[in-house]
Amino acid sequence: MASSTLASASAEAPPAARPGLLAKLRRRPAFAISSAIALVVCAMAAVPQAFAGWFGGGDPRKCDLVNSGLPPAPGHPFGFDIQGCDLYSNVVYGARSSVLIALLVTAGMIVVAVVLGSLAGYFRGWVDAVISRVMDVFFGFPALVGMIVLLQAASTHNEWTVSAVLILFGWPVLARVMRGSVLETATGEYVAAARGVGAGTARILLRHVLPNALGPVAVLTGLNVGGVIASESALTFLGVGLQTPAISWGVQLNTAQQYFVTSPHLLIFPSIFLTVTVLSFVLLGDSLRDAFDPRLRQEVARP
């Protein structure tokens, strides 16, 4: 009879729950190391005072031309820059603009990409046609040249202008991924099911499509952060990004190139910080992607 079927059905055992995403991530050494470094860099950006004073110095603006270009000395582990300022505290303070730009650019790109990508992928038709053609224009255009031209024309060169230019040339990559992801998600049966019970467009987009379509974009964004930091340094190094007296790794490298033979430490220390930071963000994004990748997840879930 009815009751027996129902009782038996409730007894149906669910398959074993999969290990959580975080638990799996923690088991990856690459994730542990890279996230630790990334955290330190972010902390440096937030409170450089706490790090800069470790060896006695601490004020990046306290300079004495007498020390110009001197190699590492007690209390000044990285030596002095051309202005005679403590290089260690300058490098520490340099993290701030890198991280700030990375945050601004990432946030900006996500907003633009999610909005435009979702519109294109969900509504398709002419909306998609317009957005996709605009993306194509950006893909066909040499981005570096575009960024240099725009920045040279700009009257101010601070974190905001550099970020704006990086967002302008960076969003299409993310938006295209978002569009594809939304296209796929929107045709899913659970979206049809939600529409079937009467859910409106806004609810379907925000409750069902967006949360399920964000995965690939989130992963790509993670991979992108390292690239943004590197791009900012490159633009600054080329002389069109941040400019002195701003403190940034790019500015430091730009100055250092002329004195490389006489004072190699000017180039080496900022480079190490830049490389390690970029590398750790790339690795972090990488392990996040591995953890999110549905194919890898399946490997874990089934025998």
């Binding site: 899913g188 049966e189 659970y190 079937g196 409750r207 399920n212």
Partner: peptide, 14 residues
């Protein structure tokens, strides 16, 4: 109301 064929794709995983 429609009952879908594939119970794996017809529920929002989140």
């Amino acid at each position: 109301q429609l009952i879908f064929q594939d119970p794996y794709t017809s529920l929002d995983p989140r």
